[in-house]
């Protein structure tokens, strides 16, 4: 039992102890992604913007969504979703494509998952100015609820890393994982009120989608950036608890398998 406890402690110590390495590796990921391209980091802004354009066209022109400042609503949910989905997609491959890191070094390979989550987070942060611009253009009011933003971000960090630990481990044993993950993410995306408002769903479906903690997460972003509300403290606390549990379970699961990684990768 005490052994488990110290393992859990280590799970929270690794990101602090190796923060320099994680930060530099995350920057490296981004640098590599954009090096040689003329727009560089600008793509971090351009990509979601172009995606948004398509969605806005489909929903306001074709489906005639009448909600106020719909593009802002969409953008608020889409950006953290991209952070989440990108991190999970990349985490799946984190261990199997790590090469020397797992095979030839004694660093904890948990770092690799954290790097993916962080590099996608940096991407997210880079696109925030565009979001602010949209908020101003559409005259959406924001204010004090923004102070909750760091809390929501930390929660998403923990949840994403936790899930990342699981998918990265499974991928080592079953290379099908990457395909499964990709499809599951699609389902998940449409199962959450990102493009639509949950009020548009039948009552039963509304209850169903909120069985998913991630739906609350997205909802929290919408409350501070779109509705200018504080997220309900009870739900936020519950979400934080879920985040810590998911992270811990993911970490322990990863840890119990990682001894085999150098032999299988």
């Amino acid at each position: 039992m005490s052994q488990k406890l110290s393992a859990i402690k280590e799970g929270f110590k690794i990101p602090i102890q190796y923060r320099h390495l994680i930060w530099i590796l995350a920057l490296k990921e981004l640098k590599i992604r954009y090096r040689g391209s003329a727009f560089g980091f600008f793509w971090s802004i351009l990509n979601p913007l172009l995606l948004l354009l398509i969605y806005v066209f489909v929903f306001t022109v074709i489906f005639k969504a009448s909600a106020k400042a719909y593009p802002v609503y969409l953008f608020v949910g889409l950006l953290p979703w991209n952070w989440f989905a990108g991190s999970i997609n990349e985490s799946t491959m984190a261990i199997v494509s790590s090469g020397a890191f797992v095979n030839k070094s004694t660093l904890p390979s948990e770092i690799l998952i954290m790097v993916k989550v962080l590099s996608n987070f940096i991407n997210y942060v880079l696109s925030l100015p565009v979001l602010l611009l949209f908020i101003i253009i559409f005259g959406v009011s924001i204010g004090l609820p923004l102070i909750v933003f760091p809390v929501i971000v930390i929660i998403q960090f923990l949840i994403t890393c936790g899930i990342g630990f699981f998918v990265a481990t499974w991928e080592v044993y079953y290379r099908d994982m990457q395909h499964i993950v990709m499809n599951l993410l699609q389902f998940l995306f449409f199962g959450m009120p990102i493009m639509y408002f949950e009020q548009q769903l039948p009552l039963k479906a509304q209850k169903l989608i909120f069985l998913n903690p991630l739906a609350y997460l997205i909802k929290s972003y919408q409350s501070i950036f779109y509705y200018n509300w504080f997220p309900k403290p009870f739900y936020l606390a519950l979400l934080a608890l879920v985040a810590i549990v998911v992270y811990t379970l993911g970490f322990l699961y990863f840890r119990s398998h990682k001894e085999e990684f150098p032999e299988l990768v």
Binding site: A100, F101, S105
Partner: peptide
């Protein structure tokens, strides 16, 4: 310090310093 592989983590797109 395990020096089992020279240049572990080297990436061609990054500079020597990086």
């Amino acid at each position: 310090v395990p020096l089992l592989e020279l240049g572990a983590g080297f990436h061609p797109e990054l500079t020597a310093k990086e």
